[in-house]
Design a protein around this nucleic acid. Structure first.
Lengths: 187, 187
DNA sequence: TCTCCATAGTCAATTTGTTGAGTAGGTGTG
DNA sequence: CACACCTACTCAACAAATTGACTATGGAGA
């Protein structure tokens, strides 16, 4: 149900093909609404049929043709209506890693430490990418100036959310590693 | 695929019925692997058939009978094997709220502010509950003593993860609200 | 030249997840 | 004494998500 609006929201950035969207959902929106290419193609089909988006085919020379999708006025209105409603369901985190941690006490501590290490470097990488996106947004300006000049602040706020999340993940991993280290000599 | 291990991990706490598990998945594990009662009953059926858990029926006087499930040795081993593997898929956050924020710029700022306010108080509530769970874990001891005395630290680490997440959510909401406030007079 | 990767998708099958209703006795509140 | 809510599930139907394979072409690097 929400994928629909995630797609509409992604199209606020402008016209895009299914393929392009699948890239976007892989990096930026992956942060809060993951979707595979297949889901996107299906959803785009549906949205086009419902008149919330419009497709136009672009002939290409040395590549397969593509269909570019744009928001219609109806789509824009439906999206705004959705955005003004309180969420139906709370945020859901699905994290395999946490299941493993929950069950870690039957496992070699060294292996667990390695898992945390991996997660940590992954979070650091993601954080670095977010920070780069932020720099692109700001483009040399202070946050205050940026917020005053730009007309869409939504994407910036969600980006801050992503940064906050990964920052905290890094801290949590570090703390967990410290705890594991203190515990190691005892076993 | 992971629900299986989430259930097994939940049973590390000891024997439980489907109904009891559905409570657990509603509060504690809801943090990282949400599941509805129906999913749990289906999964328990499967796990019992695969010999990873064992059921025994408890006759009850003035309540419906219940089936209590316990981990078998096989189940325990499979869970440990799973916990030692690196995660197949990265953590996925699914948050309707963030879609709304991404698309907030077509919406009355006052409405958006109210959404953030709601989210903030929700996060504060969750945080408070986590802190209470932490106090129950520690039971008056310092963290250091607790970690030295207890044998399963996995649940404590995941709890710290939950606390970290909600703490950061609170901070993020506060920051976003400050930004919205600064911006309000301009519109 | 061979192979891999990127573009731009489609199709089908299967697994997960969600929703709603039904059963049935017990307990607590006004 | 009615009514709602708690325990403890089961069944059926549907919607959403995942996986893997398949089609085509072009460009880059070994």
């Amino acid at each position: 149900m929400s994928l629909k609006y995630a797609v509409l929201a992604a199209l606020l950035e402008g016209e895009a093909s299914g393929y392009e969207l699948s890239k976007v959902f892989d990096v930026s929106l992956a942060n809060f609404w993951p979707a595979t290419p297949q889901q996107l193609y299906r959803e785009l089909e549906r949205l086009a049929q419902d008149g919330l988006i419009e497709a136009r085919v672009v002939q290409q020379e040395r590549r397969p043709n593509k269909r570019l999708f744009t928001l219609t006025e109806t789509g824009r209105r439906e999206l705004s209506a959705f955005a003004a409603e309180p969420p139906r369901r709370p945020a859901a985190l699905r994290d395999e890693f946490l299941i493993k941690i929950q069950a870690m006490d039957g496992v070699d501590p060294e292996v667990t430490r390695a898992l945390f290490e991996e997660r940590l470097s992954w979070a650091r990488g993601k954080l670095a990418r977010y920070e780069r996106v932020r720099d692109r947004f700001l483009d040399g300006r202070t946050e205050e100036r940026y917020l005053a000049e730009v007309d869409r602040i939504g994407p910036y706020l969600t980006l801050l959310g992503g940064i906050a999340l990964e920052t905290e993940t890094v801290r949590w991993c570090e703390r967990a590693l410290a705890i594991l280290k203190r515990r190691a000599p005892l076993s």
